[in-house]
Each structure stands twice: as C-alpha cells, then as structure tokens.
C-alpha cells in the first residue's frame, strides 16, 4: 500500500474515532433505562450461585456459553483439519524442568481452586480451563510433544465432554418439563458445578491441543494413521 493511501486511511480513521467518541458520549448521556445490573443482582438468589458473573454465564445466558464452547471446539477441529501438529520442542534443561515440575501442578491446583471459587467469587470454568491449557503449553514448551495430553481418541472424547454435559443437562431439564437449560430450584448450584467441571476439562484440553497446531501425531506405538 502506498503512502498517500495509508495517510488517507489514517485521516479517515481519525475522523471515525472522533465521531465514535461523540456517539459514545451521547450514549452515556442518554438515560440508561432499566439497567440489567439491578435485575441481575435481584435474581442472584434464584440462580444458585453467588458470583453474578457466573450467574450470567451459566444461568441467565447459559445458552450463549454453550455456543461459545462450540466455537472453541470448532476452532480446534479446524486446526486439526489442517494437518499434523508442529514438531515438539527440544527437551528442557535442568532449571526449566525443575520450574515446570513446580509450576504445572500449581497451575492445575489453581485451576481447581478457581473452578471451585467461581460459585461465589471471581473465577470459573473458563479461567480454570485457561490455566489448565497453560499448563499444557508449558509442558509442551518443556519438550513434551503431546503437551501432557492423552491419545487422539481420548482427546476427542475430552474436548466434547463439556458441551455434551452442558447440552445433556439442557435436554434433561427440557424433557423434565421445566424448559431447556432451566435448572430446577435447589439443583442449580450442583448442576452448574457439574457443567463447569466438565467445561473446565474440555477447555483445558482444547486450548492445549490447539497450541499443538494440528492433529496429534501418533506416537510410534499408536500404529499408522493415514
């Protein structure tokens, strides 16, 4: 792209930014109407969890989250369809290995902690899953080509587990006559925890597998994949 064109784009975008700022200002000025915040807070006791963000994610807008997990799965499947994983890393030296052997368990532990705490304080499935994923990344960086993950077959089952549990809970409540993803009172806390646990595992495995950048290479013992 030549210089005048770049300049032109820049100028136009400056204008764009100014307009947007003005609009944003106008949006703030506009009376905010009935904000969802109060509603969300008022409904919190009914949702079964105490952390409002978790309530939004897994109760009020649980359906969004279901589809979001599908997005993650889609990305992984897309990456797998592109070919084999990138080559692994050279084995870690002593210092790194020592650090990894400390940090990875801590990551997993923290993940579990965040998952558990998500019910009443900041944290939740996604943060926990991201930590698990990071553990996988770290393992792979330290030389484990599989990033600590099991065989492809098992990976396939793990990555779908989160959505499967989520969707089956939804269908279950639907069949039970309460409506899709509508938790029966009293059960919601545990159902949410169940879904979150499955989702955490799936997210962690998905992220770690995505970092590998392709289909898991079969280990020598796995036999031939075409």
């Amino acid at each position: 792209m030549n210089r005048p064109a770049k300049l032109m784009i820049g100028l136009l975008l400056c204008l764009f930014a100014l307009v947007l700022l003005w609009v944003f200002h106008a949006a703030l000025m506009q009376s905010p109407g009935a904000r969802l915040a109060d509603l969300a807070m008022d409904s919190l006791p009914l949702s079964g969890v105490k952390n409002p963000v978790t309530a939004v994610l897994l109760s009020y807008r649980a359906y969004d989250t279901l589809l979001e997990l599908a997005v993650l799965l889609a990305a992984l499947l897309g990456i797998w369809s592109l070919g084999a994983a990138t080559p692994g890393f050279q084995p870690a030296g002593a210092a790194l290995a020592a650090m990894v052997s400390w940090v990875v368990p801590l990551l997993i532990l923290t993940g579990g902690y965040l998952l558990w705490v998500g019910g009443y304080a900041p944290g939740g499935a996604f943060q926990a899953g991201a930590l698990l994923g990071s553990a996988g990344v770290l393992l792979r960086l330290a030389g484990d080509e599989r990033a600590g993950l099991p065989s492809e077959r098992a990976q396939r089952r793990l990555v779908v587990a989160g959505i499967a549990v989520f969707a089956l809970v939804g269908l279950g409540t639907m069949v039970a006559g309460i409506g899709f993803l509508t938790y029966p009172p009293g059960w919601s806390k545990w159902l949410i925890l169940l879904i979150e646990t499955a989702a955490t595992v799936s997210i962690g495995v998905t992220l770690a597998a995505a970092y590998a950048g392709g289909k898991p290479r079969s280990r020598a013992s796995d036999g031939a994949t075409p």
Partner: peptide, 15 residues
C-alpha cells in the same frame, strides 16, 4: 504463575 510462560516460549526451540 504465567510470568514464566512467555519467557519460556520466547527462548525455546523446536526439535
């Protein structure tokens, strides 16, 4: 926890 990941990722090399 993650402070190390970036540093490791930057310096590691592939087989």
């Amino acid at each position: 926890l993650l402070a190390s990941v970036a540093a490791v990722a930057l310096t590691r090399r592939r087989i």
